[in-house]
Design a protein around this nucleic acid. Structure first.
Lengths: 315, 315
DNA sequence: ATTTCAAGTGTTATCGGTAACAGAAAATGT
DNA sequence: ACATTTTCTGTTACCGATAACACTTGAAAT
């Protein structure tokens, strides 16, 4: 591996000039910059993360904390991780993954945290390094998330547009901002159309949404669409409607949310609001690195649009 | 953060002695060792990974390469990752994640590779650092995997024991060692019992196994168990049997393989062979670190038992 | 023409460890 | 008792980068 020194010799300058080209290019004349860039290219120079870390009193490590129990979650973390990891790579940063049962936090330059619940607030505020949350929150911590409200609003509009007379919302029964936002997206569009809202909140497992449909089957007229706050809930709904011989998508429609994996497992494939998880991961990484560089300065929030991915569960 | 120097001063010895206590304790008298240990405890000393890396010409980074397309795979990578990450953490190592579309490999001390196929052989052998594969292979590279053959053998025994007259094997249609091992586990037990084998290999997607059941529905007598090489295939089988009004688990049984997530999504819950993914991840990490320390010395293979996790799809 | 200053580049010390060598003390041999 | 080894600990240089400071040089100011 070529070092700064190698590049410096090749370009006939000092190490310091090369370092400056990398970190403070405005302090170097264009002429030298060109020489240095060329030398770097020729030697395919890659900075040594350990040396950077040592010199800067940093670690070049970002920790990802996953506070949720993973076997109860959708598998989207993998995509998130990919997004984060690829982005960190570009800046010679690497990742450490911590799960709820392994939080003996060593050293790092910053944190990305996901799966937070209200009760984690103290813990989050106790973190002594720049922190970014993946997931909407009202603890005043910078975050990245899908635009939950807009997303559900769009889906509701779509359902109405497609002529479903009744739109039932099946939410996730947790007192968290993301859940409220999704519900709000549904409610406001229904209200705009002068339609009655039907809201039910369940634990996020397909067996509960299936049970819910079973127990209330008679209450649902034909031409109803079930707007579910997760694909997992959507899956249970599909299953139970099929059990009753209901016609999907003509008499009953289903729209899920997440679009990571389960929507493809469903049959018919679930119409869903697909989140750009990998891009959001990259955004988390960029934000936390920016925050590290700016010594913890708040970066605000960033919302990503979802994509309405059509499957066989809507007309 | 306390440094080696701080510890040294506190214990009234030189940095070098402290370093020796950590890396070559046999070279230091017990008396001094005690002093140093005490100082380390008092200052709650944690070594600086960057400094170690720099001094040893290492990176303290292990790269995880995922060669598979992730949106077509089971979500178990997350568990694997957790296992790897937690283990690496203990030795001040961190992880970098590379996916097929991001293989511009920077520097690292070793590799863990998963999702390899036969055609990746050259690529794997081109890796210039200690490498461990997650997944059985016959390229002569050290690996960790479930004991696929024993696993399927046990499931086959179980099916027969439970009185299913016919046991049909639905495998994954790829020419890879893991697939052959699973099939072999099935075949040998069937042969031992003097039973006829029924083997079909399909692409690993639920829609294909569903289609397969549909097209051959009349060929399957009651009292048949479908032994599937993945839960994903199992899911399709369940779906289609229900579509035909078949009685699960009395007339038809299904056993899947993996036990990560999809088995819980299925209804009824799929009986499956649950892999210890997280422990295997930790084993990968341990093996690659050992290999790094021993300068690439081969470490052999390590097979993990699966657990037969009973669900509602078998008697 | 001389001083003043800013811009651009180089030199030195440093981050926190480790290996190689050096030196002192204790153990062994004669 | 003295030379020789062995055992243990300390000193020095170095890993690859960066910040702080020092030094040129040419342009602007007087």
């Amino acid at each position: 591996m070529a070092t700064l020194n190698d590049v410096a010799k090749r370009a006939n300058v000092s190490k310091m000039t090369v370092s400056r080209v990398i970190n403070h290019p405005e302090q170097v004349t264009d002429e030298l910059k060109e020489l240095v860039y060329e030398a770097m290219r020729e030697l395919s120079y890659r900075p040594n993360a350990a040396a950077i870390a040592l010199a800067n009193n940093r670690t070049q490590i970002i920790k990802l904390l996953i506070l949720e129990e993973m076997d109860t979650t959708e598998p989207y973390y993998m995509f998130l991780l990919t997004g984060i990891a690829n982005e960190l790579d570009k800046y010679a940063y690497s990742l450490q993954l911590l799960t709820h049962n392994n939080i003996q936090i060593g050293d790092s330059d910053g944190f990305i945290v996901c799966g937070t619940r209200k009760e984690d607030e103290d813990f989050i505020h106790g973190l002594d390094k720049p922190t970014v949350l993946f997931g909407q929150n009202d603890m005043g911590v910078d975050y990245i998330d899908s635009d939950n409200e807009e997303s559900m609003a769009r889906a509701t509009e779509y359902a109405i547009e497609k002529g479903y007379e009744t739109v039932v919302y099946i939410g996730i029964d947790v007192d968290e901002p993301f859940a409220h936002s999704r519900e709000k997206g549904y409610t406001s569009v229904m209200r705009n159309h002068g339609k009655e809202t039907h809201i039910y909140n369940l634990e996020n497992r397909s067996r509960y949404s299936a049970a819910f449909i079973r127990e209330n089957w008679d209450a649902f007229p034909k031409n109803t669409l079930f707007l579910c706050a997760s694909d997992r809930l959507g899956l249970g709904v599909i299953r139970e409607i099929k059990e009753h011989g209901g016609d999907i998508p003509n008499d009953y429609g289903i729209i899920g949310h997440d679009g990571v994996f389960l929507d493809q497992i469903a049959y018919p494939n679930l119409t869903t609001l697909k989140q750009s998880i990998t891009e959001m991961g990259a955004a988390c990484a960029r934000m936390v690195l920016k925050k590290v560089k700016e010594e913890g300065k708040s970066q605000g929030n960033q919302l990503f649009e979802t994509e309405l991915k059509l499957g066989g569960t809507t007309r």
